[in-house]
Design a binder for these strands. Structure first.
Lengths: 151, 151
DNA sequence: TGCTATTCTGACGTTTACGTAAGAAAGCAA
DNA sequence: TTGCTTTCTTACGTAAACGTCAGAATAGCA
């Protein structure tokens, strides 16, 4: 977990705290690590407790958000977030280089990753909009009938 | 199934056809009937083949649509569609009565059922919109950085 | 009426996404 | 160091949503 470096100043969080902060359970977090949705917590020997940063909490929150909002399996979500992980990596890379050509290449990749997510979200959004429109239509018809009766 | 009366002129569909038309499988359709998501096909003796109408196909389509779009369990979906079923019933009732008071009562119930569904859909829509907005924001930032480099 | 394709009803199998329990180990506090 | 809480790993359990298979029955057709 935490592909980015852990800030030394913030107290490391334990799995129970992360679970509470994100409204899940330790089991779920371990499970997500198990299936590769979360990177294994770094610098941690076998049997030692996992420790997390606030950034990790955000990461978990985003996973849960996407899980609940898009109708994807955790497997599909993995693929989407692989891109996410790559994105974080790219951001790091971006900070390290001054070479314009490099920066340009990295930015373009970032752009594409985000585009992919946007496509997915917009697709869902469109479908939901259609549904809402149909319901509103029905609603209007009923309202019209009611109005007639109230004359 | 088919709470409304089956039009005599249309050839009854068999479960395999319905499955194909809706992009599912016979098993799924039987399962939905089993858990009460679909009303048991009417006028059908034990062991006889189920037969469906085009209206039933639409019903199945809507179930699948809601299943895929909203993140509900089939159980929750049942409850939502129970209202749906009631709505169909109300529509039938509506056609049968001329009494304005009765019609008004029925219309108000219809209105409420639709409102409930709309609330649900709009909730999802809002969340998805937030997500899309955030992604677009990131996208803009990346684009801005890219523009800087192209000077 | 016979043939063949579907469908029927169980019943058991499977995958996903965790829950739960057990025994050992780690972390912290006094 | 002792004691208590939390976490660790391993492993089995479970609910939802179907898949799959078996053997019998049905529906449409020649």
């Amino acid at each position: 977990m935490s592909a980015t470096t852990t800030p030394a100043h913030e107290r490391p969080l334990r799995i129970g705290e992360v679970a509470e902060l994100t409204g899940t359970t330790p089991r779920t977090i371990r499970y997500y690590e198990e299936i590769g949705l979360l990177d294994p917590a770094p610098e941690r020997a076998q049997g030692k407790h996992r420790c997390y940063t606030k950034a990790d909490v955000e990461r978990v929150r985003e996973i849960i958000r996407l899980r609940d909002l898009l109708g994807l399996s955790l497997d599909q979500l993995s693929q989407l977030l692989e891109a996410e992980s790559a994105r974080a990596h790219l951001r790091d890379e971006l900070k390290q280089t001054e070479d314009p050509a490099e920066r340009k290449r990295i930015l373009k990749q970032l752009h594409e990753h985000i585009s992919n997510q946007l496509d997915l979200v917009r697709g869902r959004l469109a479908e939901l909009n259609d549904l809402a429109a149909e319901l509103e239509d029905k609603q209007r018809r009923v309202t019209a009938l009611l109005a007639e009766l109230s004359d």
